[in-house]
Design a binder for these strands. Structure first.
Length: 211
DNA sequence: CGCGGGATTTCCT
DNA sequence: GGAAATCCCGCGA
């Protein structure tokens, strides 16, 4: 029952998420099955070859946000856009920004307190070829930014508020590898409260959004 | 390789 | 009305 490790303040959660896995199940587009011209003898519906694809990534960079923080979407209180952040821990808060991009947060703390951690970069573990196909490019550039990884994992508003214990987008707790160290820095791309040390990275990981 | 602009939602002043 | 928890592409050096 992971929500207890997520039912903490945003900084602790942002830290604890480093090394954890995100598992994404993608239903293949229905393959156009060559069907006989007259469908003779066909009784049931179309037998689509359902080949769900599975992508696994490892979180390497996060940022903490909460309602006491001027840089947070929850600073001014609850709204239609941010309501998931005020819900229980362990759910997806997804927002659309710059008219183009989605970004994923894991909600933290307890119901009623708007807090969470932005997932800024991930390291592919399984399904790199699916990621590269989806992104139309190769290597770290596929996943080393908050909107990039959403594109790679096909994350959009349809997963808003999703319980991250469940497929098709789930979180699995995991530890850092031996020798890995956490580094804390200011957050990226904000102007308010820019000095706060609320960005957490696995030091030296090649998939970080910035070195 | 660094810089600049465009895309165009959602929120708050 | 304007800025934003961003990315990508094209430009010029």
């Amino acid at each position: 029952m992971f929500p207890q490790f997520l039912a903490q303040d945003a900084d602790s959660v942002a830290r604890a998420l480093l090394g954890c896995h995100i598992v994404r199940i993608l239903d293949d587009e229905p393959v156009d099955e060559p069907v006989g011209a007259h469908d003779a003898g066909r009784v049931s519906g179309r037998a689509d070859k359902h080949t769900p694809e599975r992508i696994v990534v490892r979180i390497v960079e996060t940022e903490a946000y909460d309602q006491l923080d001027p840089a947070s979407h929850t600073f001014h209180g609850k709204s239609e856009r941010n309501r998931a952040m005020f819900g229980p821990a362990g759910h997806a808060y997804i927002y659309f920004t710059y008219g183009m991009h989605y970004c994923l947060n894991v909600t933290a703390a307890t119901e009623g307190f708007g807090a969470g951690a932005l997932i800024r970069a991930v390291e592919p573990v399984e399904g790199m070829e699916i990621i590269e196909r989806r992104r139309g490019r190769k290597g770290a550039d596929c996943v080393n930014g908050p909107a990039k990884l959403c594109k790679a994992l096909d994350i959009d508003k349809t997963l808003y508020g999703h319980d991250l214990r469940l497929p098709p987008l789930s979180l699995e707790q995991a530890e850092l590898r031996p020798g890995e160290r956490i580094e804390v820095t200011p957050r990226i791309g904000i102007s308010k409260a820019a000095e706060r040390q609320r960005r957490f990275v696995i030091a030296g990981n090649p998939y970080l959004s910035r070195r």
